[in-house]
Amino acid sequence: MKIAVLVKSVPDTAVIPEIGPNGVAVVTGHLDFVLNPFDEYAVEAALQMKQTHGAEVTALSLGGEEARQALRAAFAMGIEIGVQVRPPRGAELTGRGIALCLAQVLRNLAPDLILAGKQAVDGDGAQVAERLAEHLGYLHASAVTRLALENGRLTAHQAFEEGQLVLEMPLPAVITTEKGINEPRYPTLPRILKARRMEIQELDAGLSDARLEPGWRVERISIPRPERHRRLFSEHEAGGVEHLIGLLQQKSRS
């Protein structure tokens, strides 16, 4: 079995990104990059699959230097093959472009299973994996909290607002991972050190800039005013419960 895991570096979530001088871009150059947390679940799921069913697992990451960091993080967890997919120089990629580039490479690799985090926590795009499934003609399940493979069929618990859909499908398929699916392993230091030296294959997406041109324009980037307007309702103050009801209605099952 061949498994592909899609990984991405995201800026350290602990730090607030800054807005560039033109006001339409986020500056991330000064930030540390870490492996997207949802991708850690995907890597762990792939490693567990490998352990139980035996598989060749390849991690792929699209991008420049930071993509290599994501691959090294995946190596540290135990992945053995890493592919950096290089986008055309200077291309500004949206989820659409990313999926097109990755599809180009994955078509040749033809994995039986593609795993990815349910979204990257920087752009919160939440679409690349599903798009890939469409480009490649694979089935897909999103935000999966339980995954099992038996007799060549996948059983995936897909989380949604009212519970879980237990889906069963044949391979090939694309699965995105949600927290709770597993507990990603903590890499050992010898692995971390080895990861620094492991070879990364490089592939070009081989698509033209025009094909990848974003279909939208960023007008403005802003930092929201603190959403946390604290409200404290003292005892017997009117309105507290009513206020809360509104909130609960909105936050649950919407």
Binding site: T13, V26, V121, G123, W216, V218, R220, I221, P224, E227
Partner: peptide, 16 residues
């Protein structure tokens, strides 16, 4: 559209 878990907001013009 919120980015970075809502720490940043982007105003997008969907030209296409």
């Amino acid at each position: 559209k919120p980015l970075y878990a809502g720490k940043i907001l982007a105003d997008l013009r969907l030209d296409h």
